[in-house]
Design a protein around this nucleic acid. Sequence first.
DNA 1: AGGTAGTTTAACTGCTTGGTTAAATTTATG
DNA 2: CATAAATTTAACCAAGCAGTTAAACTACCT
Lengths: 202, 202
Amino acid sequence: MDLQKRSTEELILEAAQAVFLEKGLAGARMQEIADRAGINKALLHYYFRSKEKLSALIIERAIGVILPRVMAVLDTDMELFDKIRLVVDTYLTFVSRNSFLPLFIVNEVNRNPHFFFRAVVEKERNHLDKFRRQVEEAVAQGRIHPISPAQLFMNVMSLVIFPFLGKPIIQVGLGLSDKDFKREMEHRRTEVAEFVIRAIRA
Amino acid sequence: MDLQKRSTEELILEAAQAVFLEKGLAGARMQEIADRAGINKALLHYYFRSKEKLSALIIERAIGVILPRVMAVLDTDMELFDKIRLVVDTYLTFVSRNSFLPLFIVNEVNRNPHFFFRAVVEKERNHLDKFRRQVEEAVAQGRIHPISPAQLFMNVMSLVIFPFLGKPIIQVGLGLSDKDFKREMEHRRTEVAEFVIRAIRA
DNA sequence: AGGTAGTTTAACTGCTTGGTTAAATTTATG
DNA sequence: CATAAATTTAACCAAGCAGTTAAACTACCT
């Protein structure tokens, strides 16, 4: 079947993802997706009936790949500081290889929170509970500075994801070449976690 | 002239901004802009020839409002920690009142870095030099943990801006109502700066 | 060899959208 | 009041786009 070479279906999905990420949902063209997949528009519609259905698939796929990764780490029994180190590293590695994904997700989630709501509420609920309790406990024991789990969660997410969203702003603002930027991102893999830990350690 | 009520031109610009922020450049419709401005399409084109010219204006306006604010603060002679407190507070206040702006800017800057490049390079260059030297000096004197100005700048930007971009993600992930979210953002106004300061203070 | 799924070609429909136009109408302004 | 500017109306054009269709071709399967 499709053991040897990537199936047409996969080719289309890859092409669709690429185009959607680059141009956004509204900006993407079915013709371009077909072209990039090396097929024609008729076949594209033969596989995925409409643009809407195709885009829904891509969105689900995108969220479904990135979300469980973080949640899985946050849900372990690992010690808090190590958990922070691991989640930063995991996330940063993944996003480095899919640098357009955050912008796409953030966009579509803002445009239509419904998708995301379903995706999370129905599956990934209370995967944060362990993390939440862990933080509250550490605060109560005086091991870390008082901070709400929500704020800490936001801070970690922010430090990891934003630089990819704001890449052009940061590059222009700081005068970094592509190589420079990549190097700074490499630094971040270790520095962000230590930054956070220094900020909360009592 | 246009002293009493807002001129038609302003009405259009406001409507255009609203629609562009909501739908994105590609998703925005000239008809909708006209409707929201309370005029008709003909008049819309009578004032601003094309969608492209109109959107260029909106982008420039958006960037031009938010960028100088941060730069002005970073360029003062203020002591480093106070500067961090001020820039966080200034930015957070502004963005709270224009919560769709960051998403729009981040989008368009990624889609077309050229705009932003011109806007910054031609005006706001080396407004970061003072901040840069300041950080390097503080590191050299051992007053703060070793950190590059670039990383520190990214961290502050991230912590301030990201929560607005990821609002739906955070809300769903943490199960926050709109009121909850707003309250958390209120906390951030003071907490983010202290978080950063604790992270770098030697 | 014949059938079936996958694929191409090429033309076409119907709708949306940006943009235009010309004439009519209203509003300000001197 | 008269003139010019602002605004509406309504129709229109051309281009782009999602989606359809039918016929032909290809490759593989049994």
